[in-house]
Design a protein around this nucleic acid. Structure first.
Lengths: 100, 100
DNA sequence: TTAATTGATATGTCATAACGCATCAAAATG
DNA sequence: CATTTTGATGCGTTATGACATATCAATTAA
């Protein structure tokens, strides 16, 4: 599994955790078995686009193809946040980020 | 095939065309058979992440997961451009867009 | 301590992506 | 016109994603 794909997997995991969801909860929302989510997050599965999109949507994420030259600009917008859109419990919140 | 995936397929096709590449040329760059690229662009294949990334890279595109709330901001940056990064021939250029 | 939750793994089945290779009609090029 | 290029299809094979289901160790309540 190459870099980009590994990275995507990491992002999914981080987003899920930031939303305070368990793999089983995400499983229910995305319609993808928990066992599969586990494999995906651990990065040893070359998942299909449909699965990626299903999981992303459940995490309030959109998949996008960004022209290389705009990547840094996009990053500066999205910033380090990993979508804390709607936590279930209020959740700590002190993102004194060392992460991401 | 759902909306998002269809849309991704369209983006890949547009980007390829904007770069003035034939499916066979892209095939060579991305290491994906032309026959498969054709299927992908026509949107009737649920391609794997590795394939998507390989093709995207060959088109100078990066795959990204954008938090919903930043999507419009990102769109306003990326704009309607489909990566005209480096055309082989100068190529028309008059994007008096009705497209995209 | 006991009971629930969580993430990771295993097995077996099925669907299908991905491959190589070949072909073909239409469009572009000479 | 003849030739080349292009995108789309088809076929047989192989690899593997995705599924259901179950289990298990470790963590986190109760």
């Amino acid at each position: 599994m190459n870099y980009s794909t590994q990275y995507i997997a990491q992002q999914l995991k981080k987003s899920r955790e930031n939303m305070g969801l368990s793999q089983r909860e995400l499983s229910a929302r995305a319609g993808v078995p928990q066992s599969h989510i586990s494999k995906i997050e651990s990065g040893n599965v070359d998942l299909r686009l449909s699965s990626l999109v299903a999981i992303a949507r459940a995490l309030e994420l959109e998949l996008a193809l960004i022209p290389r030259k705009y990547v840094s600009a996009v990053n500066s917008i999205v910033g380090s946040a990993g979508s804390e859109t709607s936590g279930q419990p209020p959740r700590p919140a002190y993102n004194l980020d060392g992460e991401e």
